[in-house]
Amino acid sequence: MANRKVALACSVCGSRNYTISSNPNRTNRLEVNKFCKHCGQYTLHQETK
């Protein structure tokens, strides 16, 4: 069985730049500062469903 992938979306422009494996034990959405190539800066990226 393959792992499900979840996208990380930029909180500023909304583009989905990164994918991660979903974790069923995670209760809250993951929030990480990542570089957004569309904004050109480090912004908060949130897990999407």
Rank of each mutant, 00 (worst) to 15 (best):
E47W: 05
F35M: 07
V6N: 07
A2N: 13
R29A: 10
E47N: 06
K5T: 11
N23H: 14
R16W: 00
Q46S: 04
H38E: 01
Q41P: 04
C10T: 07
K37G: 01
V6W: 08
A2K: 14
A9H: 05
R29Q: 09
V12R: 05
K34Y: 02
E31Q: 15
K34F: 03
G40V: 09
A9I: 05
N33R: 09
L44A: 07
R29C: 05
M1Y: 13
R29N: 11
N28S: 13
L8D: 02
A2Q: 14
A2T: 11
R29H: 08
L30A: 02
A9T: 03
C36R: 02
V32R: 00
P24N: 12
L44I: 07
R16G: 02
Y18C: 06
L30F: 06
N28E: 14
G14W: 00
T19Q: 14
N28V: 08
R29T: 02
N23Y: 13
H38R: 03
I20M: 11
S21T: 11
V12P: 00
C10M: 10
Q41I: 03
S21R: 15
P24K: 15
N17V: 09
C10R: 04
Y18H: 11
K34I: 02
A2L: 13
R16C: 02
C36W: 01
V12Q: 06
I20S: 06
T19D: 10
V6R: 15
K37R: 07
A9P: 04
N23R: 15
A9N: 03
F35E: 04
E47T: 02
R4N: 15
K49V: 04
R26H: 10
V12H: 04
S11K: 07
L30M: 09
T48G: 12
T19I: 12
Q41M: 08
H38M: 03
S11L: 07
S21L: 13
L44Q: 05
C10N: 07
E31A: 14
T27E: 14
H38D: 03
A7W: 09
S22I: 04
T19S: 12
V6K: 13
N17E: 13
N3R: 15
K37N: 01
S22A: 12
C36K: 02
T27H: 14
H38V: 03
Q46H: 04
I20H: 05
